[in-house]
Design a binder for these strands. Structure first.
Lengths: 332, 332
DNA sequence: ATGAAAGCGCTAACAC
DNA sequence: GTGTTAGCGCTTTCAT
């Protein structure tokens, strides 16, 4: 494990010169550079970045906090983040399954200088702690967000996206549309519900409270559970709008396991546009989010924040993808 | 941003004492401890771990290298790794989508002391580089492996697992069984093929070369593509064994899109036991790997290696999970 | 263009 | 039990 000292010695120059060669920012005479480079090769030298990090007081690590690694929704976002991070010579660390204790673990990494910033995709964090943290450390939000001045976000317009999805069902003639949502304290959930309500109201349809189901989570099982509840109702809906694809896939499964057909008996719409949504049978109609782009934007924003460049929040475009679960199979 | 110096000063003790309190390993008088602790609170002090890392020459970061974050197979493994890592005060960094350049990026982190060890789940790495690296740095393999003395692994017995899956199909009366595999240079692929061949041979069935399909990858689309190829054949199989669940799900989808029924026209078996395999319609029969356990074992092994404790490779148990895609729907 | 030297924040050996 | 001190390996003034 050669150090910069040894390289300097072998090359017959000072450590400063070696450092200059490594970081090739300042001018070094070709002769010195040459000597240093052969010494580096000779010794198989690799700079110890722990030293550099301490000296520069940066870790070049970005934390990406997601609620659960189980939800494929985050995958393409992460790919986008990674792309930008790599180009800017940052690494990213995925922090999943956050819980209060884990949360503080990650926040601590920021305070302990082990990370330079956070991309937050989990809304279930301690608001106060987050707010105070965001005053001293770079944080951006992606997809889900909390309205805090000091934390910019990138997201779609959930209200309109949801409105589009429900309008699609309405335009197909459905009037009995159930909504499978998650807890209202998530802002996206609130907005998606608002979009649902606005669409119904514009079509002059009364809301049936029985059809507003709250799922615990976005797991497949939660989707199945919700459908079981719906199918026990006296009056059953002819369409179900689930607030995420993972839920919708569980919905699909449970409908079919109950001997009903999609979309003939019940049409289904999901949300997110995960790759899996194409692979179900029938393929899932869904509101697709520009996940890769969201990741790119979030990472760019965060790195700018780290560099003390002012950044502002932005809204990106969603897209309704119509597939078999609402309009049935085409003849192939 | 308070430093240990300032804490020491405020507490009226030396930095050594503060360090002792922080790492509470050595004995400190209750009085000093008290003083230090109040000073820490007073200053809102957080130790700068960059300093500690440099001093201790460790990063307490484990690298987890997977081929693609898109394959849910790795998710539960990662959860297992995380559990162990957290308990041992390590962090993990997920390294996905590896390519030659990315690969060297990750290997560099090891050399540059930014990571303490690697859990490798991607077999597509440069063998030579890996071999030489493994002599100086702690590396363990999980699931997929390359037989290198210096790199222990945890995995299932792929040959037997595959044999079990195919035997299940044979016992249902299938004799025309296609195999959708990946490239033979992956050891798991080779072993799974061997299991397939052994099962057929024990049943006295000739191998039909047309039914040995090689998929590019484990994506859904690769599964669909493979089925399209199979369905163009003069003589079609009555069952398909796909070497991963992601492939199998594509297989399922394409069979159904072609107007055929699973398992009536073609039965399907997958491999891995990802959570999604339960949610397809019909639910997928698959060979389930003990992913969480594998993650736990791998992380434990790696940390032991880092601590210079000798570790040996181990084989864990798989499990054939029979579901609708081979035996059809039960009456509910 | 280059070297000497200070110091990033911490831990641990050593002396008391 | 506690303080002094020497680094861990690097970058970066400041001279020259």
């Amino acid at each position: 494990m050669a150090t910069i000292q040894e390289v300097a010695k072998l090359a017959g120059v000072s450590v400063a010169t070696v450092s200059r060669v490594i970081n090739n920012n300042t001018t070094v005479s070709p002769k010195s550079r040459e000597k240093v480079e052969t010494a580096i090769k000779e010794l198989n030298y690799e700079p110890n970045l722990l030293g550099r990090n301490l000296r520069c007081s940066e870790s070049r690590l970005l934390l990406v906090i997601i609620p659960s690694i189980d939800n494929p929704f985050y995958i393409k976002i992460i790919n986008g983040i990674e792309e930008v991070a790599r180009n800017m010579k940052y690494s990213i660390m995925l922090c999943a399954n956050s819980s209060p204790e884990r949360e503080s673990l990650y926040f601590d990494m920021l305070k302990q200088r082990l990370a330079d910033g956070i991309i937050l995709m989990d809304p279930r964090v301690n608001m106060e702690r987050l707010t105070s943290l965001s005053e001293s450390y770079p944080i951006v939000q992606c997809s889900e967000y909390i309205a805090i001045e000091s934390i910019p976000y990138v997201r779609i317009d959930n209200e309109i996206a949801s409105y589009n999805a429900v309008t699609h069902l309405l335009s197909l003639g459905h009037t009995d549309i159930a909504l499978i949502n998650t807890d209202d304290r998530f802002i996206y959930a609130k907005h998606r519900k608002q979009g649902y309500l606005r669409a119904l109201s514009e079509y002059g349809i009364e809301v049936n409270e029985d059809w507003l189901i709250t799922a615990d989570n976005h797991n497949f099982e939660d989707g199945k559970k919700a459908v079981k509840k719906v199918l026990q109702l006296e009056k059953k809906p002819t369409a179900i709008f689930a607030i995420s694809d993972t839920l919708a896939i569980g919905v699909l499964k449970q409908i079919q396991d109950s001997g009903l057909r999609v979309p003939d008996d019940i049409a289904v719409v999901g949300f997110d546009g995960i790759s899996f949504s194409e692979m179900t049978n029938p393929a899932l109609t869904t509101v697709s989010q520009p996940m890769y782009q969201m990741g790119v934007e979030a990472a760019t924003m965060l790195i700018e924040k780290i560099q003390s460049i002012p950044v502002t929040s932005r809204i990106v475009k969603h897209d309704l993808v119509v597939r078999e679960s609402t309009i049935g199979k085409k003849i192939k």
